[in-house]
Amino acid sequence: MDALRTALQPITHNLPGPVRDLGVSLIGESCYKALVLDIDHENTECVKLAVSKALGIGIVGASSIVKVPQIIKLVKSQSASGVSFLSYLLETSSLLISLAYNVRNRFPFSTFGETALILGQNVIITVLVLNYSGKASVAALFVAALAAGVFTLFNESILDATTMGYLQAGAGVLGVASKVPQIAAIWSQGGTGQLSAFAVFNYLAGSLSRIFTTLQEVDDKLILYGFIAGFSLNLVLAAQMVYYWNAPSAKVKGKQKEAPIKAAPAATTTGASTPKGKGPTTRRRG
């Protein structure tokens, strides 16, 4: 270890200014000195903080595309089969409240940045689901309500910190509740339809990582309990995705149930005629 430290320190002590400033901004001056300059990997607190920051940045980066496959599946299929509107409505509401709460409390961006990115993708998915369900007017109403929510939640003169705390507690409940309609939809349809496996499994990994980063960087039980509950239901969704992996979609099931209707063969004329008075209703008199 001493030999490795001796070899690396000339490099770590001469990093470019922007790289050094970025490192200090992420893990702080003391941990930067311990981990980068002194290369002291026995400093467990700084190591945990560095891992937390790396996970946070990774989650934020992955969240920028986490629901893009879901959007692509909806657009390609022109169908919202298997995707619960209620689930996305609840989740979007929860994300918006959480975003406002984190911004107003000035928490590190690495601990909540994915909230803003996923929120934007959720809005697109919700609008697509409504449009493909023949409810374009409801989609317009949804966007208008969302804009009003943004204005209200981020305005400190309208909502004080205490009220935001209550809303954040409610957002945790909404976030958990948002998974229930999706789980129920999969169960009732016997398949995952147009639900994206990429999004489901990334959500599972992200929620687990967020438990760790919240424990390390954010002393807020409301946020922590929300992530723990969310992880539990994300685990159920992932299990459903595995269980119904090869199940046919509702559209395919409908086609399978349709039996081909064959026309009855036309009667052929043999040339023989029915004798008069000998029809099927004619009685023979004795």
Rank of each mutant, 00 (worst) to 15 (best):
P10C: 05
T12L: 04
N14E: 07
L15T: 01
V19T: 13
L22P: 00
K33H: 15
A34C: 09
V36F: 13
E42C: 11
A50N: 10
I65R: 09
V66Y: 05
G82R: 05
S87C: 03
Y88H: 12
Y88K: 04
T92N: 11
T92I: 06
N102E: 14
R106P: 01
E114A: 09
E114W: 08
T115V: 13
G120R: 06
N122I: 00
I124A: 11
V127S: 09
L130Y: 01
N131P: 04
K135W: 08
S137G: 05
L141V: 01
A145Y: 07
A147M: 10
G149I: 00
S157H: 06
I158M: 15
I158F: 13
A161G: 02
M164R: 03
Y166M: 07
Q168N: 12
G170N: 08
A171W: 04
S178N: 13
P181K: 12
G190K: 00
V200H: 03
A205S: 03
G206E: 11
L208V: 12
S209V: 03
T213V: 15
T213P: 03
Q216A: 14
L224S: 06
Y225N: 03
G226Y: 00
L233W: 04
G254D: 13
G277D: 14
G279S: 14
P280N: 09
P280F: 15
